[in-house]
């Protein structure tokens, strides 16, 4: 088994394109997923009628494989008038999948904000909106940070699944190059190393962010 550096070099634009798409889907999907997950957690907490339907939706997303969700969206979508390009379907599916996990993290975070802090805010005459914005959200943000970082890193690996619905991200590009040139195993090794490095770097960056933000951790 040998790596042909020339081959890798000549296909560099494809590899970088796939890598770029993986990064974009991961970052955009995580940001959108965090926003949506936060919204879901807030709605479940504050709007009584929405708690049960949203909880059911989250349970279904968290209890079924990501691949089945993608198939449902990509192959089932056209039957209900939702024909999406692979990239759009992939990004949408990835965002919805991530949002379910993020909302659960935020829900736990909301529950962990000490009751006394909220009561103190009420005693000082802050409105519910102010309590949310100035007490609950900042405290929760620091509490959920480790779980959030963990989830973001886990989701990086989930982007590989998008190759199955032909999203031209890193896994699809590199395995395509491998099978065209009969170096499938070598290309998969390269791919594994690529992801391993990305996950280690993302984990390291996350830990740096945690250390930086730990100084804001509320004393409980």
């Amino acid at each position: 088994m040998s790596f042909d550096i020339g081959l890798i070099w000549s296909r560099m634009p494809d590899i970088l394109g796939g890598f770029g798409l993986t990064l974009v889907i991961w970052l955009v999907g995580c940001l959108a997923g965090i926003a949506l997950g936060f919204l879901v957690a807030v709605l479940r907490r504050n709007v009584a009628g929405l708690n049960i339907p949203l909880a059911a939706w989250m349970e279904v997303t968290r209890g079924t494989p990501f691949l089945i969700q993608l198939f449902l969206l990509y192959f089932g979508g056209p039957f209900i008038g939702l024909s999406l390009e692979p990239i759009t379907a992939g990004l949408l599916g990835f965002t919805l999948y991530g949002a379910a996990y993020f909302s659960e993290i935020f829900r736990a975070g909301f529950a962990a904000v000490p009751r006394g802090h909220i009561e103190a805010g009420e005693c000082l005459g802050l409105s519910q909106g102010q309590i949310m914005r100035r007490i609950i959200v900042p405290e929760m943000a620091v509490l959920v940070l480790p779980a959030l970082v963990n989830m973001i890193v886990l989701l990086l690996k989930e982007t590989a699944v998008l190759s199955i619905i032909t999203v031209p991200e890193l896994t699809m590009m590199i395995s395509a190059i491998g099978s065209e040139n009969f170096v499938f195993v070598e290309s998969l090794f390269l791919l594994a190393l690529f992801y391993w490095a990305m996950v280690e770097i993302a984990g390291w960056l996350g830990r740096q962010a945690e250390v930086k933000l730990a100084s804001f951790r509320p004393a409980t």
Partner: peptide, 13 residues
């Protein structure tokens, strides 16, 4: 390694 590489890639490999 096994936590850092996507399962899909591990299976294909």
């Amino acid at each position: 390694f096994f936590r850092g590489v996507p399962l899909l890639v591990q299976l294909l490999l």
